[in-house]
Amino acid sequence: MSRKPPTVDGLSTQGRIGAIDLTWELTDWEPLVDHYAIHASHSAEVDLSAETLIGKTVYGRFTHDTLGPEAVTRYYSIVTVDAAGRRSRPSRAVAGTSTASMVVTGTPIAQVGEFDSKSLELALAPSGGQSGYRTAFPNGVDFTYGTSDPARDWSYLHPGPSDAWGGRTRHTFRLRFSLEEEARRLGLAIWLIDTHASLAGTATISVNGTEVTEVEFRGGGTRGSLEGDATVPGTALRPSFVELELPAEEFAVGENAVAITKNSGSWHAYDAVGVFALDQGR
């Protein structure tokens, strides 16, 4: 009864915007692993307590997400818990650092929603998208920064061509904003609280009617159509982040529009969207 399960080996980290991905080597089938308990700390001394426990999984990977837009460093240690409730010795602590987002390195030009890992401030959130989208947004989303209201005018859920509830067609979400002076470097940040797991799909990004690139979304948890808060402990939501620089020559002084057109796959659920000036970091 007293033999401890094996200690996790091979723990490594990889940082990205808003998140740090952890991977490790799976232990043997016996004793059966109930779960790996992942602990995170601000210091290299990882205290194994309820306060530092950030998640449990049976997989050999875990994403520490909802870390926010700043670059942050965390230290991780993992404990194996077996089917009998026995706990292994903690793994060696390993550091990981996330990447800073343009949300903090840039200067906001236009923004919809808060970059807070929640969709709750957006229209139809957290679960009314599939039933209410086509009525509320028969022509897609057309949002003007400064006058439109995120709670009324930007749907948290963006349907894709695979979605019967969206009419199995492409839908465009357009963000209009004004530039007072000629842009030098502008970036687009699309933060998602979740995507469809196997049909995350792709979207075309357009600036003032000109297609500038296509982005591919990361597969999520297929829960963001029903839930809106990715900071809830144990949530099935899997946030992801798309940030890219847009071609400055496509912008003009005065009115501009950036459009997101879902051209393949199923829905994605927004956390927030913003356009940022990248050459005036703060």
Binding site: L32, V33, D34, H35, K56, T57, V58, Y59, V81, A83, S127, G221, R223, L226, E227, V232, P233, G234, T235, A236
Partner: peptide, 28 residues
Amino acid sequence: YGITPANLWRQGTGELGTAHAAATITLE
């Protein structure tokens, strides 16, 4: 699936708590 107010149609159960709100992945 996680049990949340959105899918808890069985009435009279009272509060379930967050342990039931997540999709089942671990043995516990």
